[in-house]
Design a protein around this nucleic acid. Structure first.
Lengths: 215, 215
DNA sequence: ACTTTAACGTTAAACATTTGACAGAGCTTG
DNA sequence: CAAGCTCTGTCAAATGTTTAACGTTAAAGT
């Protein structure tokens, strides 16, 4: 089958969710100077089966090599291309509380191409204050900044009561996707995807796992 | 079928992942004074089908009522019991960088029963400093604190190069589960579950969604 | 009391994901 | 230069998840 065709086909969500992990691993190996990686060693590193890895990687426009595996450099590039993170993506952050400030100060995302170009807050007490090298801006500036800087992603770290209203503002300002750090479930038009980070949910899931394994 | 039996059966992972969301929603409705909620309105609030909601809730030891739906109070209690968050769970946090400090300062987790009882860091420059009302402790204190305070969950917010080594120390100190905020994949014995929060992965997943929808 | 109705709980079919199995490709070695 | 080996890519079976459909229950109205 033509690989060009493959990549046009819709990639299953389960596969898309694993791709960032393959990308992280490929970057990591490449930085360590490893040139080739097999589906088996990727699987062992990520807690999967080699079969799953091969099946997953068949969805990207990139070929492994018999007897060697996958080139770490090629894999990294192909995954980045497939995910759309082979170029910078501009983001804004709304909500300059503890979590929001931590994310704004975290340099890791910027290194991975997610460039924060503005920090917003609705509280007059916070607007104008500095967060790292950002000056917190009022919500009224949202539309203009999104338009001028071609912002693609809005990151929400507001109290959950305010989440839906802020999400609506972000959508109106024509942001293309939302990263939701709140516990609220956001309702958005189909054209605006939302990914939840679920920190509290993860803790609760963990509580269940811890408990059900103690038996 | 006897519901007592049901709850002993293993709950599918997909269902466990949704339960925290149902719990959040039930709490929220109860706080607003809503007494009953139907599978359909839960579904609409969380972006699911009513069928999924009913199927999911059939796994907990709690019954809905014909023509009314589920009691928000009862639902909240049953979900909390099932997840094991009906009592406090002690946690420690390792890594007092930006993200770690933000989590330590965030009061929401404490209100939900996840009590942080210690903040640790390996850097002598950080040990001894204050983070909120915590004084950052050295890694050497880990074992003693976990034993004395019966710590169940370790939260990792260290640089990813250090993640596996710190995870190993936490496991040795007999923590029962790990919340992983790093991009590293952690390898643990089967008895020690790990839940990843995947903030960077979520951003990448979002980048893919945004891109594949622009067509 | 009886009918209507709005909900749940359960079944089974549809759909999605994961896994095992194996043919084929291309290094490597003698 | 052929044999052997190790790895990929793909197929199909097994497993897991979601959904629609429907029988059942209990409240509400007549």
């Amino acid at each position: 089958m033509n690989t060009e065709d493959m990549t046009r086909l819709k990639i299953p969500v389960a596969v898309v969710r694993r791709m960032p992990k393959y990308l992280t691993q490929a970057q990591y190996l490449r930085q360590e100077g490893v040139q080739w990686v097999s589906s088996l060693s990727l699987a062992e590193a990520l807690g999967l089966t080699s079969s799953t890895v091969r099946q997953d990687l068949s969805h990207i426009d990139f070929q492994g090599v018999s007897k060697r595996g996958y080139s770490t450099v090629g894999l990294e590039a192909a995954l980045a291309r497939t995910l759309g993170v082979d170029h910078d993506i501009t983001c804004i952050l709304v909500g300059a509380g503890n979590l929001g400030r931590a994310l704004a100060l975290h340099e890791g995302f910027g290194r991975q191409g997610f460039k924060i170009v503005g920090v917003f807050d609705s509280s007059p007490a916070v607007v104008g204050k500095k967060v790292g090298h950002f000056i917190v801006r009022p919500m009224a500036d949202l539309v203009a900044v999104v338009a001028q800087q071609k912002v693609e992603i809005g990151i929400l770290s507001v109290p959950h009561e305010a989440a839906q209203a802020v999400a609506d503002q972000l959508i109106l300002s024509r942001v293309r996707g939302l990263l939701n750090l709140t516990t609220a479930h956001l309702r958005t038009p189909a054209a605006v995807p939302v990914v939840d980070t679920r920190v509290l949910s993860s803790l609760r899931e963990l509580a269940y796992s811890v408990r059900s394994r103690q038996v």
